[in-house]
Design a protein around this nucleic acid. Structure first.
Lengths: 248, 248
DNA sequence: ACAAATCAACATGTATACTTTTTGTTTGAT
DNA sequence: ATCAAACAAAAAGTATACATGTTGATTTGT
């Protein structure tokens, strides 16, 4: 991010958080991290601050840093943010997309269709295909956000996706959660994607928004369902007051 | 924010940025700030990082920090973000608002109406009334965001408002820009606010969104118009690559 | 005289010693 | 035996000295 050494620390810690080696709640002590990363405490602290703004770490004054734990309420809030941003982005994409971006989306759709077909054909659900499907799904969504031509919007959405990923756990085992389990569901998702694509292609802002909103809402509902039965909700309340400081 | 001393520095610098004493582009040198704030460079650096995540300061590696300058493109992007978030928030508010929150909104509307009436009556436009109008306007919007019951969303919107405020310059002189100049325009805004309120009151999600979107879009259009004739656009490009790091 | 390279100054980035705060344990009184 | 207060260990926060990089001016070569 900023400097050579703090960037080393940043990348190091971030990687481990995304890998799941530092799971949510894991205490991140500056001295230990300094030893492990080979830099001093100062750049480690910088890195932790940066990770805090990424939403991956929470720092409490005089009490150190931990890998962020997201309780169910905060998760809901993050989902609503995604919904607001990605829906709006789809509308922008319908206005601003270029031919090559449309081509990219079509390519993603085709590759996803291929994966889906393969899954429908075989009785088992090979992990490898599921993961490929997930990757293409992400690509598709990123292509749309990119077409919106708004870097801030894109950055924010990607940030939320990354946090989501940490909450959900590491890559292997995520695929079936996100891509959907039943064959019906998978077919439905494919249909959704098609609808979104066509709305964007014909420049229909309202339709792009509506279809995207429905799609994301569906993903989120499914995700929360899976999450609620898996995890025990953990909390970490910090009451606001930003409203007050805002007018002073 | 975090620690005692870095919080001192944070508040100190933030205040001056919002006051306009440190205008956009102003170089923020750690040593100078350390002297002025009475703390050492370390907490000053922390404060600058925090301000960077607030979007008020930009830090470039090995080249120091400056008060953030927003070029016209980035400003447009921020506006689109606001549009996405506040529009969605209005929809949530229509679902989640409580009676006392509705009361608060009505109170704001009444006070704004009073201001508007006073302005329509007198020939001049006393600065004091304009500022009161602006304050009530902000209160109204904050009340809506609060009713959405989403702290993340609210925090993000307030963050954008603060940046907007810095871009627009200090309080005196802003009022006429934001509140609108002509009497027609002011009446139109009042109508917009009423429409938004009624949609939220009757729990009409779609109408709340639609009216809010129209309203914010109108504010933004006006703002950009004023801004474009006032300022020469300045740039500060940093090419992304976050898309790449996202999949690794 | 102008361009490029060099050097000096200055600001940022880093390491480390020092201070303060937190946290858990021991000890003492009821 | 229980609770509380004092204390000790450890980690965060802070200050400062040192290293590294940037900037702009001076010098040198063509």
């Amino acid at each position: 991010m900023k400097d050579i050494n703090s960037e080393i620390a940043y990348k190091f810690i971030r990687k481990r958080i995304l890998d799941g080696k530092y799971p949510p709640g894991y205490p991140l002590m500056t001295e230990d991290l300094a030893k492990v990363t080979g830099v001093s405490r100062t750049p480690v602290r910088d890195a932790l601050r940066q990770l805090e703004t990424d939403g991956l770490v929470s720092i409490r004054p005089n009490r150190g840093a931990r890998v962020k734990q997201v309780d169910l309420n905060e998760f809901r809030e993050m989902c609503e943010l995604r919904l607001a941003l990605e829906t709006y982005a789809a509308g922008l994409a319908a206005r601003n997309r270029t031919p090559v971006e449309l081509q990219e989306m079509r390519a993603c759709l085709a590759r996803m269709q291929e994966c889906t077909d393969r899954l429908l054909a075989s009785k088992e659900e090979p992990q490898e295909v599921l993961e490929k499907l997930l990757i293409e799904d992400i690509r598709f969504h990123v292509a749309i956000i990119s077409s919106a031509k708004n870097r801030l919007l894109k950055k924010e959405v990607l940030r939320l996706h990354v946090i989501n990923r940490v909450v959900a756990g590491p890559m292997p085992g995520r695929a079936d959660q996100e891509v959907g389990k039943g064959k019906n569901r998978r077919a439905a998702i494919q249909k959704c994607h098609d609808a979104i694509y066509h709305a964007i292609e014909r420049g229909d802002v309202q339709a792009a928004r509506a279809t995207m909103e429905e799609h994301i809402q569906d993903i989120i509902d499914n995700f929360i369902k899976v999450m609620a039965q898996t995890e025990a909700p953990l909390d970490e309340r910090t009451l606001s007051e930003e409203e007050l400081s805002y007018l002073t």
